[in-house]
Simulated scan of single mutants.
Amino acid sequence: MENRYHELAKKWLNNTITPAEQAEFAAWYNAGQDKPIEIPATFAENDEALKQRILNKISREIKKSNSHVTKIIPLWLRYAAAVFLFGGCFMYYYAHTHRAVKSNVLTQQQKPSKNDAGPGGNKAILTLANGSKINLSDVKNGVLASQGQTVLKKDKNGRIIYEASDVKGVDSSAIFNTITTPRGGQFQVVLSDGSKVWLNSASSITFPAAFSKTERKVTITGEAYFEIAKNKNKPFKVVTGRQMVEVLGTHFNINAYTDESAIKTTLIEGSVKISADAQSAILKPEQQSSLFNNKISINTVDTDNVLAWTTGNFQFEKAEIPSIMREAARWYDVDIKYEGEIPKRRFTGSISRSVNLSELLKMLKYTGINFKIAGKTIVVTS
């Protein structure tokens, strides 16, 4: 068996490894390794030669950073300094996911087969203050509506932009709109102050057409990533159930799905104040607060994992299968059914959100768990 993984390691270094072999290699690592493995002499003359060979591989991979080819990549391949002790010598492995900008445009979508599900896309419904609804997936670019002194536009990138006028008239701060994404949807909106919001699947944001002179306040459900325009004189507040986040200008993510055990707020830059009931806490960059059972706890996290959805990727780090399945259900608009005991395995890996459901499940099968797609349901068996 060890010879097989020697072979896969060599293929990876020589750029001849297939996606299926990458997944096999990832599954082997995810299973946990506690036995030393000897490196054959033909693989590298010595430790230094091996290190140089890996570093050369890193350099080649970085030059391909704009590639859009979907890869199944375990966490350990995402870091240039991920180190394993194999037979007394260090091996350095690295593979990076392609660099991506925050975008709602999915690339390389595959047409799903009959017993499969395609990935989500730009889908949302805008509900105006008068109750009328606009399907944002169907409307053409340009002006969509006027709300008080605010004009709503859809730009060439598919975003909805609120442009507030300084002309005196109807107070737009009393006119509330709601943007809702379905399962299998995502969307981006630019608010009247220039703040940008990315909505994940099965999420919503309710906000005024224009903010008042004293505060900026919105309410969300589900998950959203914010890049808040700085204004030291006008705080920005985000309400999610029992929690409120207050900022002046910063970047952060809130995960407040009702089927998750906690409301999680992750700070990317700047600072935010988290309040819930009589508690409050200040977050620093790379910290995440969890509101669970009316108590706030704070941990340091990998923000790349938290924001993977905004760059078009699934990214899991020691994630439990039910957590992965909930994320898949929201993105592919399917239901989850477990036959027998719910698997207790954890998984680490990454794959593009533009692939069909079957590709994600194929990656997860290497954990030893079986899946089948029955109409709009994923059946999970261990």
Score class of each variant (00 low, 15 high):
G184Q: 03
A229R: 00
L291I: 10
V238K: 01
D47L: 02
E246Y: 04
T348H: 02
S358C: 08
V167R: 15
Y79K: 14
L152N: 07
L364R: 13
G368D: 01
D138E: 15
T178L: 07
D277H: 13
K64D: 15
I39T: 04
S103I: 01
Q147W: 10
A256T: 07
S382H: 00
I228M: 03
S103A: 02
Y162N: 07
T348R: 08
A174L: 14
V245G: 03
E317N: 15
K372V: 04
N157P: 01
Q22V: 01
E61V: 11
N104T: 11
K102N: 11
N15S: 06
D277T: 11
E359M: 14
K133M: 08
S297W: 04
K153C: 03
N56C: 00
Q110P: 01
S146E: 12
K344M: 12
Y225M: 08
A124Q: 05
E260C: 06
S201V: 09
G118S: 12
L248H: 09
E269R: 13
I254Y: 02
G169Y: 02
V170F: 04
Q186V: 05
H251T: 14
Y5T: 01
I324K: 10
A27G: 15
F25R: 00
N141M: 13
T310I: 01
I220R: 05
K51M: 09
E339D: 14
Q243Y: 09
G120S: 05
V379D: 00
K217L: 12
F90L: 10
S113N: 09
F226E: 02
K264S: 10
L360D: 00
I324M: 12
T107V: 08
S195L: 04
I296G: 01
V143E: 12
N233E: 06
S67K: 04
I73S: 11
H96G: 15
L136H: 07
S358V: 10
D171E: 08
A100K: 09
H68Q: 14
N293G: 14
D116V: 06
T97V: 10
N130S: 12
V247W: 01
G118F: 10
S350Q: 14
Y79H: 14
N3W: 08
S173C: 06
R242Q: 13
A210R: 01
T181S: 05
I175D: 05
T303E: 05
A9Q: 04
S173W: 05
G194M: 04
Q315S: 15
L126H: 07
V301D: 03
K156T: 13
D333H: 12
I39E: 00
N46P: 00
V151L: 08
D138G: 11
V170Y: 04
T300Y: 10
A41T: 02
T16N: 06
V190A: 14
F347P: 01
N253L: 02
K230D: 00
I73T: 15
I39P: 00
L75T: 12
V190F: 11
L8S: 03
D138M: 15
A202H: 05
L364I: 09
T300A: 11
S201F: 06
S132H: 10
S352M: 14
N115A: 07
K153G: 05
A80G: 13
W12S: 11
S290F: 08
I336G: 07
P112I: 05
I336T: 11
